Simulated assay, not measured.
Amino acid sequence: MNVLVTGATGFVGRRLVDALLETAHDVTVLVRDADAYDQPGDVTVVEGDVLEPGGFEASLEDVDVAYYLIHAMDASGDFAARDRLAARNFERAASDAGLERIVYLSGLGSDADQLSSHLASRREVETILAAGSADVTVLRAAVIVGDGSASFRMVRQLATRLPVMITPQWIETPCQPIAIDDVVAYCLAVLERPETAGGTYEIGGPDVLTYREMLIETAEIATGRRPLIVPVPILSPRLSAYWVGLVTDVPKELAYPLIGGVRNPVVVTDDRLAQLVDVEPTPFDVAVRRALDTDHEATPHLETRTQPRRDAE
């Protein structure tokens, strides 16, 4: 199968490309700067930008499945408008190319809630991609734990730099974080299960934690000490983003939409995919240790972890 990975230089994209190279699939990557791309192996590299029609369509030639891992949240300005434009351009090009399937990594959260701008943009991209002729598989995840994750970097730096934290009420919001190894495993698993085409699936780790619990556990693993966390009702998301900007190196363009999203509970309520594929979930503490490299382990052999369950219906 010919597989395209967009966003190949990103946190998830880099790891997904490495994992795909261990399979029998042919891999193409779409990058904005081919000269700066550190090619990991036998991949076809195409330079282009989905924000510019006419400049990226060559990446879709002879491709069967594309992973859409593009998010504009780390850039200044209106990230939702850029995400909308990028998704529309990609959907049109994919339809014109006769692409069979798109796999999109989206955000976890209930549509019944008032979604943050970050999560609402992810939902809009889902809708735009699904409007084309390709079948779209959506994987919705909450905080991804791994070295290079912006959301986990924010958690880690807050946990390790502040022995005392005055926090807003969102500190008690429940979250179901997931290890980066598990995200990659699910991405590979749906590729091998054609019946997941056109479906939307929620993915998460085995632990449901509040942000307070995530901060405390991360601090204890990283520093050996337990921070004092005092929630107060007066910190708005905007003030919280400024606070995060003072304490961490997460850019404000990224911190504000991330903080805006923590008011939404992000917990798996539909575990259909876990029943279809055999991905052993990684506990939060293990994922944190891997991300901090205090208990470094090699990435699991994903080709053995993602074999479909033979008794699945």
Rank of each mutant, 00 (worst) to 15 (best):
N89Y: 02
P300F: 07
L246H: 02
L119I: 11
V277W: 04
G261L: 03
C175Y: 06
T282G: 08
A58E: 14
P206W: 13
T269N: 10
W170D: 13
E280L: 10
P206F: 11
D111V: 11
L129Y: 01
A24E: 14
P265Y: 11
A291S: 07
D270S: 10
R263W: 00
T196S: 14
A87I: 00
I221W: 00
V3F: 06
L239C: 06
R84M: 06
A94H: 07
V230S: 11
A141C: 08
R305L: 12
V45Q: 01
L258K: 03
L258A: 08
L108T: 03
P251L: 07
I221N: 00
Q307I: 13
S106M: 06
L158S: 09
A142D: 09
S59N: 11
A81E: 14
E100F: 04
A130P: 01
P206N: 11
L99N: 11
T282P: 05
D96F: 00
L292S: 04
S76Y: 06
Y201M: 03
D285H: 13
E217S: 05
G198C: 10
P53R: 13
A87R: 01
E172Y: 03
V184K: 08
L69P: 02
G261R: 04
D271P: 08
Y186M: 07
A298R: 15
A197G: 14
V232T: 13
W243L: 12
T223A: 09
G54S: 07
I166S: 03
Y37Q: 03
A150M: 14
E253N: 13
A36P: 00
G98H: 03
D35M: 07
Q275V: 09
P194Q: 04
S236P: 07
T6Q: 10
T294V: 12
L16E: 05
R305C: 04
D83R: 09
R225Y: 05
C187L: 15
D74W: 13
L69Q: 14
M1Q: 13
F284L: 11
L215Q: 00
L276K: 12
S236E: 06
D147V: 01
L215N: 00
I70V: 14
